[in-house]
Design a binder for these strands. Structure first.
Length: 560
RNA sequence: UGGCCUAUGGUGUAAUUGGCAACACGUCAGAUUUUGGUUCUGAAAUUCAAGGUUCGAGUCCUUGUAGGCCAACCA
């Protein structure tokens, strides 16, 4: 957690502020989600930045819901956002809502009108938009721009009282219709929305726009550094302008700074597109293990630590970026390697018969649970004459690079004996149905005999057929086939859905796995990390593959 | 045809503010290994371009080039 690391540009800004006399105890941050969707991997970056800063400087971090648009926002999202942040391991100082400040915002708006800095526009939205023109040419002022303070006050109050229809009036800041920054061309501060709000109910029928609500909320909460993504950079002059209207020099002047959002290859984070995946049934829900949502990653088996470390390693800067998903893989493997008990499961079984092992005999062999963690202890695994091994772990003959079972070479069965392939049975199509081998009774793992210490090139995982526990395994792969599925605006991102993003197989597990609870992660030896899915029933355990192990053999093999 | 922002190995980020371009992931090679995992060692690979200032430029200046953002009563 506290590895030596150079400061990112945001930390440089804070250090500079501190060096210039800003009191450290007045540092305060916030994470401001709009409760209109589920949190995803990109939000995790912002969460990590803000809460990470809170931890680093021992400063409070508020969770503030930006709930100024009742048309899109719901309590359900508030709940899931809170759950996800907590799961990631962060604690907010206060749970707050922009809607808490509606009255204060309204009062300030009245002051702006009185100061001649805001006016009610009676024009429809399309006309206002048209009058703003384009960034290349100056806008045109509204005919209502210069009406009297009294009239504005009256109109605004009547807007508030619900006397007008939606869209018929709006309160606008009077700034500069010729600004090259479109945000300054008399932005709308309030619109009429006759919709119930998830917190304020029907108290209000006018709602503040983002720019008006957000910066002033920062000010009310005395947020010292308001960090957001780069697309808000052009809003900063407006943020400052609004702040100027209400600022008291005795207070902290909140500042907005912008960083580049984090993009991860083969993932999308557009709320609209994510919603489409869910609604059209391309995934099973917001928490489908292939989704980039926090709930999806959680169900997939990612740990909070792995996600935090991922963003820690990714860093923060201001340029567009596309992170290699290999970094995410690495982060999750790195953590899971340390904490996951090892078990043996065969995903694609082929029968192996040990011809010189007595029929009916069984042995319970002691095996370590985690070579990375001695405290994890040991368990017993049943061994018998007939086993399943992985189909790809056998070739009738192979070159020197193939370390696995052949008809010529010896391999070790993990935690058991050294065996040697003898012959195979095949079906009419030439597929191997049974492999016969002999074992060396003196080579038992851990027995200390000379035979047991013999070096063999390969070690295979296996499961005793008569003891095997059938389980369902869901093998997940990336959801899309290209790094940026939504980069091309002409193309539908759905065209890039990976048809093989999920494969379901019946696998055979060692019996001890029966006791695994939902959510638990284990390493299937030599295969990857898997966690127990909530769809598991009393009869059938279901595992999600979080990530495979690194597989240098697969790389060599396909390279040939 | 406006304004703003950003350009450093394959990818993501650093560089004590003008002083030997580094860290991580990935890649490749080797060692270790009862997981082709882990761990360890090593290697290849970087300053968008052209000028300029300077003893010295990733950093400063000029001119380009490329990419991104901005024209919701969304956030």
């Amino acid at each position: 957690m506290s590895e030596e690391r150079s400061l990112n540009f945001i930390e440089h800004i804070i250090e500079e502020d501190l060096a210039n006399g800003f009191p450290k105890e007045k540092l305060r941050f916030r994470f401001p989600p709009e409760p209109n969707g589920y949190l995803h991997i990109g939000h995790a970056k912002a969460i990590n930045i803000n809460f990470g800063l809170g931890l680093k400087y021992n400063a409070p971090v508020n969770l503030r819901f930006d709930d100024t648009n009742p048309a899109k926002e719901e309590q359900e999202y508030v709940d899931s956002i809170k759950e996800d942040i907590k799961w990631l391991g962060f604690q907010w100082e206060n749970e707050l809502y922009a809607s808490d400040y509606f009255q204060q915002l309204y009062d300030w708006a009245v002051e702006l009108i009185q100061a001649g800095k805001a006016y009610v526009d009676d024009q429809p939205s399309e006309v206002i938009t048209a009058q703003r023109k384009t960034p290349q040419e100056p806008g045109v002022e509204s005919p209502f721009r210069n009406r009297s303070v009294e009239e504005n006050l009256d109109l605004f109050e009547r807007m508030k009282n619900g006397e007008f229809e939606e869209g018929s009036h709006a309160l606008r800041a009077k700034i500069d219709m010729t600004s090259p920054n479109m945000n300054m061309r008399d932005p709308v501060m309030y619109r009429i929305l006759k919709k119930p709000h998830h917190r304020t109910g029907s108290d209000w029928c006018i709602y503040p726009m983002y720019d008006w609500a957000h910066g002033e909320s920062d000010y009310i909460e005395q947020i010292s550094h308001s960090l957001c993504s780069l697309e808000f950079k052009p809003h900063r002059p407006l943020y400052e302008w609004y702040l100027d209207q209400v600022y008291d020099p005795a207070k902290v002047r909140n500042k907005q700074r912008e960083f580049a959002r984090g993009n991860v290859g083969y993932m999308i984070t557009s709320k609209r597109k994510l919603l489409k995946l869910v609604e059209e049934g391309h995934v099973t829900g917001w928490d489908d293990p292939r989704m980039p949502t926090i709930s999806g990653l959680r169900r997939r088996g990612y740990t909070p630590e792995s996600i935090r470390n991922f963003w820690e390693k990714a860093g923060v800067a201001k340029r567009d970026n596309l992170l290699d998903p290999a970094l995410l893989d690495h982060s999750v493997r790195d953590h899971l390697n340390k904490i996951s008990p090892r078990v043996m499961t065969v995903l694609d079984p082929v029968k192996l018969v040990i011809t010189n092992y007595p029929e009916g005999k069984e042995e319970w062999l002691e095996t370590e649970n985690n070579p990375e963690d001695e405290a994890a202890g040991t368990r017993k695994v049943p061994f018998s004459r007939e086993l399943y091994i992985e189909r790809e772990d056998f070739r009738e003959s192979a070159n020197r690079k193939f370390f696995r079972l052949t008809l010529e070479k010896e391999v070790r069965l993990k935690g058991a004996y050294i065996i040697k392939g003898e012959r195979v049975d095949k079906d009419a199509d030439g597929n191997i149905t049974t492999i016969y081998c002999t074992y060396d009774p003196d080579s038992k793992s851990g027995s200390g005999t000379e035979a047991s210490q013999r070096k063999v090139k390969g070690t295979l995982h296996w499961v005793s057929i008569q003891h095997a526990l059938p389980v369902q395994v869901r093998l997940y792969d990336r959801l899309f086939t290209v790094p940026q599925p939504d980069a091309d605006k002409e193309k539908d991102f759905l065209d890039y859905l990976n048809p093989d993003s999920l494969k379901v197989v019946t696998a055979y597990a060692e019996p001890a796995m029966k006791a695994l609870e939902i959510g638990r992660t284990v390493q299937f030896q030599r295969l990857g990390y898997f966690c127990v899915d909530k769809d598991s029933t009393e009869d059938t355990l279901i595992f999600n593959r979080t990530v495979t192990l690194r597989d240098t053999w697969a790389k060599m093999d396909t390279a040939d």
